[in-house]
């Protein structure tokens, strides 16, 4: 799997896709969606879709696909090669959400949670396939969240497509298994070949599975904690594992939208200058209030250096 496009800038999201098989543009198709790397505190999360004509479901079954989690890394690689060999009727596409995208989205001023992020990635991929001319009729989605709500969301978004959202879809439907294999292979590659944009010097890449409860991962997070910057972008800052470590071991950093300073954030949204101006004048009611030229520019005289 060639990830060079993502590796060129692994701070942002990236979409990778196979060629669209011609047969998918003329025949009714089914499409499976699955994700890989949702839980880990390290590396990207990958959304994968796989699609083929409904008539080719049996051919897909013959590839002996299974849920990627039940397979070894080697088996997954083999199966991905088989999928690639079947490119005359099977297509795939991936959305790689970089850990930096995950961190900055989830920690955004107006929070963008992981579910919304995931749904948007999935919807984006389906739309991409539709835009490419695939005759999409059936959609199978594996989910960890509430299935009914997600199913309704997708059905509304893609009228005319029969949507099935259910847990364990990756073991029930071969097309979802195929999607899960694509996603997992991409995630494994991305983690293994991660090039740190930071200058990390001699780096120990023994970070284990990346899951927060993996002792190797924990040890790595402790070892590479920087007191000012926290972590390289490879780490998802929005994970509580990372946050907890930062809270106890890194220097405190305060933002204007921190809960502690929520008053400030409210002031910013309403009328910052007015309020701070008022506060200032209340404090020094005896002296003259500075001209608005200075208050607007946050400029003040100094009493001492």
């Amino acid at each position: 799997m060639d990830l060079s496009e993502f590796e060129a800038d692994n701070s942002v999201s990236c979409r990778l896709a196979s060629a669209i098989p011609d047969v998918c543009k003329t025949q009714d198709c089914c499409l499976g969606i699955d994700e890989a790397g949702r839980g880990p505190v390290l590396g990207p999360m990958v959304y994968g879709i796989c699609f083929c004509p409904v008539s080719k479901k049996e051919d897909l079954k013959n590839l002996k696909l299974a849920d990627s989690k039940t397979l070894t890394e080697e088996q997954r690689e083999d199966l991905f090669l088989k999928l690639d060999e079947a490119k005359s009727f099977v297509g795939w596409a991936l959305q790689i959400l970089s850990p930096n995208t995950i961190s900055t989205s989830m920690l955004q001023r107006s929070k963008y949670n992981l579910n919304a992020l995931s749904h948007d990635a999935a919807i984006g991929l389906v739309q991409f396939v539709l835009d490419s001319g695939v005759q999409l009729k059936e959609l199978f989605v594996d989910t960890v969240g509430p299935a009914a709500k997600y199913q309704e969301k997708l059905s509304q978004r893609f009228p005319g497509v029969e949507v099935t959202v259910c847990p364990k879809a990756d073991s029930l439907f071969p097309i979802v298994s195929a999607a899960s294999i694509c996603a997992k292979v991409a995630r494994d590659h991305a983690v293994k070949s991660w090039t740190f944009p930071e200058d990390m010097g001699e780096l120990d890449t023994n970070y284990g599975s990346g899951y927060p409860n993996d002792p190797k991962t924990k040890a790595w997070l402790l070892k590479y904690l920087d007191p000012v910057f926290g972590y390289p972008q490879f780490v998802r800052f929005s994970w509580s594992t990372a946050q907890t470590l930062l809270d106890s071991k890194a220097v405190p950093v305060h933002w204007d939208d921190d809960e502690e300073d929520g008053e400030k954030a409210a002031a910013r949204q309403n009328n910052t200058s007015m309020l701070s101006y008022f506060k200032a004048s209340a404090q020094q009611s005896d002296s003259r209030t500075p001209h608005r030229f200075f208050t607007e520019r946050r400029l003040q005289s100094l009493h001492t250096l």
Binding site: D9, S11, N100, S103, T104, L107, Q108, P197, E198, D199, M200, G201, D226, P227, V228, F229, G230, P232, Q233, R236, F237, S238, A242, L246, V253, W255
Partner: peptide
């Protein structure tokens, strides 16, 4: 602080727009 290693090295300068992240914030 390792400003050049962690911060300067990760600044993206595209189309007159500089972006970077600090502590997971854009």
């Amino acid at each position: 602080a390792e400003v050049s290693q962690f911060f300067t090295a990760t600044i993206k300068d595209r189309k007159h727009e500089k972006t970077v992240s600090f502590r997971g914030r854009g």
